[in-house]
């Protein structure tokens, strides 16, 4: 009946950066036609209360590559079990299960890319759109000795946001870090970027 004839995938692992989670495994090399894989997941709820339930991944059941973007499957900050098997026609391999459950709170958080510009005297910042889970702590200051830092939380990336009305002739610098409330963590700060405001000194 085609059960456990094919070799099961090996070396399952998850690579997660900025809340994008990629499950990978070693490809199964078989002669002849193309080999497919099926990926299934089980959140902590299923493993505790309905342990027989495994849910087909939304984007890799089936797939012919040896990786699967499981971002849309891992939707809560709890441990998830993941498993993969090889399939070809009616034949399937045994399931290979990820050795340790994956929790998205282990994702690697990178500083956001950002564009600092000005519109006249207005300091404008556009942050990389990293998705709805992300907010940003933005710190900006006037570049002068003993300058005071100002902080602002920006709720969304991908749109230009007004930070400050600048003084003529001054330079302003900005740095930002990504915040993910749902896992209670943040990235390192980005490199600071500065802009200078030309123009005459301000009338008294």
């Amino acid at each position: 009946n085609g059960v456990a004839v094919l070799p099961a995938p090996q070396n399952l692992s998850v690579h997660s950066t900025n809340m994008k989670h990629l499950l990978t495994w070693s490809p199964v090399i078989l002669p002849g036609e193309m080999t497919f894989y099926s990926v299934e997941y089980q959140g902590e709820y299923e493993s505790l209360y309905t342990s027989h339930v495994w849910i087909p991944s939304s984007s890799c059941s089936p797939t012919n590559g040896s990786e699967c973007d499981i971002t849309d499957d891992i939707t809560a900050t709890v441990p998830y079990n993941l498993r993969v098997r090889t399939t070809r026609d009616s034949q399937t391999s045994a399931w290979s299960t990820l050795e340790h459950p994956f929790n998205r709170n282990s994702t690697v958080l990178m500083p956001p890319r950002m564009e600092v510009t000005k519109d006249g005297f207005h300091l404008v910042l556009e942050l990389e759109d990293l998705g709805p889970q992300f907010e940003f702590l933005v710190v900006y200051w006037r570049r002068e000795p003993g300058a005071k830092e100002h902080a602002k939380v920006v709720r969304r990336g991908g749109i230009p946001v007004h930070l400050e009305t600048m003084d003529a002739g001054a330079a302003y610098c900005v740095k930002a870090q990504a915040l993910v409330k749902t896992i209670g963590r943040h990235s390192a700060f980005s490199q600071a970027k500065c802009v200078e405001v030309q123009g005459e000194s301000l009338p008294l």
């Binding site: 510009t117 519109d119 006249g120 005297f121 207005h122 404008v124 709720r155 749109i159 230009p160 946001v161 007004h162 009305t165 600048m166």
Partner: peptide, 16 residues
């Protein structure tokens, strides 16, 4: 150029 601001009160002065 377009930029936006999110506010909760009812007045905003765009200066300079």
């Amino acid at each position: 150029r377009m930029w936006s601001q999110s506010i909760t009160n009812h007045t905003l002065v765009l200066s300079w």
